[in-house]
Design a protein around this nucleic acid. Structure first.
Lengths: 233, 233
DNA sequence: CAGTGGTCTAGACCACAGG
DNA sequence: CTGTGGTCTAGACCACTGG
């Protein structure tokens, strides 16, 4: 008897990965079709399908009906970053988290913002500026616009204790969104809030989320100097 | 009769997502178990399982045997970035790609590098410095160390025409690796190569890949000013 | 039009962990 | 110890697309 068939699809997946990585199956080459592999591994085709489907999702295999499955020529690496709530991020490092509200106002945003958020040109949004701290040192400076149409409850929230970050997750779900990473030179304000020299290179995260066709919030997080974002490959 | 059952798991997934996003099922709440949903949707439990498994992978659901399935309290957003070959990245933008080798040498790396790559302290590695160009303008400056033990063929490659990026993908597969994003101030060298002011804030990607327990390559890409990396949520 | 992957099903057994 | 998710199977039909 073979060993327990539990987690069999992973056994298949491991073996397929081994053959790709060992060049037994070379980039651009066809690999046997599902039925053949099922026979070889002595399992159901469903099991092979699951193993291959997951590999294809990582970009290492190209699968097409009728054409079959090939090893990708130039696999596009997919790096998945976990974007947690900042409090979690800080506490996971074993640091004490604190949040300080700097500004809270209801006002019409600059054109760039209302355009990006697809809100009416003159419409007022809720603007928040806040500082996230880790062990009493600045961690990230937040600059946020909230669409009150999508999250009306925000009007009654002070955001003094709870960060908008957490409040929104709990009260204003989103269906999709976009994240952009970039670098910026610290403005005088940034430098002041983040305790770094003006002009220092800072890591920036911009996020825009939507609920259906309604923008929910647009946030820009400027991190303290030397911030890194890390992902496994 | 119902509509074709094709892509049924997506229909289930969409409905489950709708219920989560509409707060019909609130954060922290249990949702019905698979068998119940299967009955409700008139499909096999396998189909429900697939729909829910995929949602759980995005972090929106927490699933545990016996405990059941709950809507996550603070979903950790997973942003997946496609890290393509630079040539592709440039050509996808409709720009002309070029690659210029600046330096190529076999030498012992600084301690930090040999430590990160777990190579013998005095061991020589292949060092490459190259500039990636888009439409004749600098795009990214590459600084790379290649472990010749993991990729011996690199010794015979000039990397004048083919970038190390592409050559390695074709000739030195990896099993796993790590990517780190950060920001840096342009050094004098960076500024010169990338045609920007010294001290400018630049986006940096560091990648270290392994084949089993052998490091393959460590590369640092410093991008031209205003570079962004984007991902859907 | 035929070969390949994509999906579905009904039923089964198993692993895990809550109670 | 029992309920829930995790996995497997054999067989089936379908969608897509290359030849």
């Amino acid at each position: 008897m073979t060993k327990s068939a539990y987690r069999n699809w992973q056994r298949v997946q491991d073996e397929v990965l081994r053959r790709i990585q060992s060049r037994e199956w070379k980039p651009g080459e066809m690999i046997p079709h599902e039925a053949a592999l099922a026979t070889e591994f002595g399992c159901a085709r469903t099991t092979v399908n699951r193993a291959l489907r997951e590999i294809a999702e990582t970009g290492l295999l190209d699968r097409r009906r009728k054409a079959g499955t090939r090893v990708a020529e130039q696999p596009v690496a997919k790096a998945t970053f976990d974007i947690a709530v900042i409090r979690q991020e800080v506490e996971t490092r074993g640091q004490r988290y604190q949040h300080r509200l700097i500004e809270r106002a209801e006002r019409a945003p600059p054109h760039a913002v209302s355009a990006a958020m697809a809100t009416a040109p003159g419409a007022k949004l809720l603007y928040l500026k806040a500082l996230h701290m880790a062990d009493d040192r600045p961690y990230a400076l937040e600059d946020r616009w909230i669409n009150l149409e999508a999250a009306p409850g925000a009007r009654d929230e002070a955001f003094a204790e709870t960060s908008a970050n957490e409040w929104l997750l709990k009260h204003a779900p989103y269906t999709h969104g976009e994240i952009v990473f970039s670098a910026t030179s610290a403005s005088a304000d940034d430098a002041d809030a983040l305790a770094c020299a003006a002009g220092a290179a800072l890591f920036v995260l911009d996020r825009l989320t939507w609920h259906r066709d309604l923008s929910v919030t647009k946030v820009r997080l400027v991190f303290a100097k030397d911030h890194q974002v890390r992902a496994a490959l």
